[in-house]
């Protein structure tokens, strides 16, 4: 007598699926999305990372799928967010993607709240709080031929090298007083992406994402650390050399990891090369500031 077949669950294949695997430093990060409304935003946010064809094994796995309450975001099976609107879930994904990835990369890498570019073989890290001018200086560098590593998460390894973490370049506001959108397009150095969501005030928000075309591939040694400060009230760019101890103290405040301050100082002191130069650049005009950086690097 033939054995009865066990009942099989009828699973409906989702009508839409985006599945990508990213290589970030030594991590493999997979993203499965079955919500078509989220896919454009997720693709725009992850476009610059190295994509892997190999779907086997992942260190982190994000899933975005529909649930009874809306669209659900999870990481490694743990619930993170549920939203009614696709853009809201994409915004939550962006936040979770950075936080989980950065946390998993430590201690091989410490993440600094800093931009990094490589120009003519020099690794330049630009650290500072929002509004200090790091994304502006980073954009100016890219317009002058630098390779892009990150505008916000600079991953410093134990040998003093920065590994690419090329999230799309974002400014605090979509329009930047020093760089018109037309100039950015005309340069041919940037692609553009975006995603839209409803802000806290109920108003629609479109987050503009610039995709630099010249990306750093291999890690770059941190040759120069810049502490920028935009100051519209001064006439000309000021460059001040900064002691290593002072730079370490300021940089300790820009680490993404929640460590005691003295531990941050130790980590930074051990990782940042002895040969790294530290400067504070106070500028009223970002283009002038970049010229000063070029001079610093070419004149030694």
């Amino acid at each position: 007598m033939p054995m009865p077949k066990p009942p099989t669950e009828k699973r409906q294949k989702p009508p839409f699926m985006l599945s990508i695997t990213l290589n970030i430093a030594h991590l493999r990060v997979r993203i499965h999305c079955t919500e078509s409304g989220c896919s454009k935003g997720i693709e725009a946010l992850t476009a610059l990372y190295e994509h892997s064809e190999d779907a086997d094994g992942a260190d982190l796995c994000f899933t975005i799928k529909s649930s009874a309450d809306g669209i659900a975001l999870a990481c490694d099976g743990e619930y993170i967010w549920t939203g009614k609107e696709a853009g809201e879930v994409v915004a939550a994904f962006e936040w979770a993607f950075y936080n989980h990835t950065i946390a998993m990369l430590y201690p091989a890498f410490v993440s600094l709240h800093a931009a990094t570019v490589s120009w003519q073989g020099h690794g330049i890290t630009i650290a500072g709080t929002s509004g200090a001018g790091k994304s502006s200086l980073c954009t100016a560098a890219l317009l002058h031929g630098a390779d892009y590593f990150s505008d916000e998460y600079s991953l410093l390894d134990k040998k003093g090298y920065i590994t690419p973490f090329p999230r799309p370049l974002q400014w605090d506001n979509n329009d930047h007083p020093a760089f018109s959108r037309q100039d950015m397009h005309d340069s041919g150095l940037f692609g553009e992406g975006s995603y839209a969501f409803t802000g806290h005030d109920g108003q629609p928000v479109t987050s503009l994402l610039w995709h630099p075309r010249h990306l750093g591939i291999a890690p770059t040694k941190m040759s120069l650390l810049i502490l920028p400060r935009f100051d519209a009230s001064i006439a000309a760019v000021q460059v001040e050399h900064v002691l290593r101890s002072q730079a370490l103290m300021e940089l300790a405040e820009e680490m993404h990891h929640k460590l005691p301050v003295q531990e941050r100082l130790r980590e930074l002191h051990h990782r940042i090369p002895e040969t790294t130069r530290f400067v504070r650049i106070i500028f009223p005009d970002v283009h002038q500031a970049w010229k000063q950086v070029e001079q610093l690097l070419t004149k030694g």
Partner: peptide, 16 residues
Amino acid sequence: IGEELEGLNEMIYVRP
């Protein structure tokens, strides 16, 4: 908390 970082010839103090 005092932290002497090797080779710096300075002490860094942290107020937790």
